[in-house]
Amino acid sequence: MGTTQLEAVQEPKYWHLKTVLGEALDSEFAVGEVLPNERDLAARFGVARATLRQALEQLELEGRLQRRRGVGTTVAPPRRGIHVGPAERHWPGQGPDDWRAIGCVEAAAPAAVARLLGDEAGDDLVHTIHRVRTSERQPVATDILYVPRSSVPGLSDALSPAEHPHAVLAELHRLDLEGEDRTVELGSARAEDAKQLERLPGAPVLIVTTRYVSAGRVTAVSAATYRADTCRLTFGDSGAVEIDTDQTRQAS
């Protein structure tokens, strides 16, 4: 294995090194393979170990590397394809659904969610369902589903904590779902989401916000937080539209 020197570039040296390392991961290493130690890698690329660590940390944040205690730094498996745009419309908890409700409370909707709900939220409390999504037995997303009281007027007031989320979802399923729209943006994991996703607070995440429309109004809003390091979100019938930073990088 020869020595590769970095040429003078305008971007930060560690960022350029990250790109070079990423190309090496694609061509020279297999999934699960342990990387050489920092001293050898720094010598190969002709950089200080501090620069190397910055590049490795960035690759770890992007899900290209995993650091395992007692093992070292290994090449991470490809991102899981997570379908978030079903061909047929379904209410949350209906149809092919791999979300699990973990709790439900009545609370004021955050200002951003209240704006999405419009007049249906008002100053009233909304049913707030917390859910978690798993893939291959690993947590990949958390979700908060906001359902105004006016959307589920037939809900009983005498519900136990265990019954509450399922009762709200059951009432939603009685409505005719007319449409839904989604937005996706990059964000940082909040402390409560990070704990559920087994990540550190502030880790990069993909936030998928969905509005559900029934009877010409927004009936519920979902704010789902997906791990950006292990998930590839797919949309549509074939999943042809993907959020995949690996493919984006290779195409650029």
Rank of each mutant, 00 (worst) to 15 (best):
A203C: 11
A109V: 01
D157H: 15
S160W: 08
Q138M: 13
E185A: 01
L206R: 05
P204C: 13
D193T: 14
D97S: 14
T128A: 13
A158D: 12
T142D: 13
A121N: 08
G118K: 08
D123N: 04
R182S: 11
R174G: 00
G103Q: 07
P153M: 09
A109H: 02
G93C: 07
G118E: 08
C104V: 14
D124H: 15
L145S: 08
E171G: 00
E163H: 12
A194F: 09
R199G: 00
D181R: 14
E198W: 04
E171K: 03
G202K: 13
W91E: 05
I102V: 15
R199K: 13
A170D: 11
A189L: 01
T128K: 12
H164N: 08
D124W: 08
G103H: 06
L197D: 09
E185S: 10
E120M: 11
W99G: 13
L177A: 08
D119A: 09
A108L: 15
G118T: 05
L145D: 02
W91C: 02
H127M: 03
E136G: 01
G187M: 12
R131E: 14
E120N: 14
L172P: 07
G179W: 07
G179V: 05
D181P: 02
G154E: 15
R174V: 01
L155F: 04
A162G: 00
E106V: 01
D193I: 07
E171L: 02
D193N: 13
A108E: 15
Q138I: 09
R100D: 11
P148K: 01
R115G: 00
E171N: 00
E136R: 10
H164F: 12
A141D: 12
G103Y: 12
E163P: 04
V113D: 07
L117D: 02
R149L: 10
T128L: 11
L169E: 11
A170F: 05
H164W: 09
E120S: 14
H164C: 00
E120R: 13
P148N: 02
P139C: 09
A114L: 06
A111N: 01
V152P: 03
T183C: 03
Q94Y: 07
V184F: 06
H127Q: 11
G154K: 05
E180I: 10
D119Y: 07
S151H: 01
A111C: 05
L186G: 15
E163F: 07
Q94V: 06
P148H: 02
P96Q: 15
V105G: 08
A101Y: 14
G179D: 15
P148A: 02
G187C: 04
A141L: 01
L117N: 03
E163M: 11
G202T: 04
V132H: 05
P153H: 06
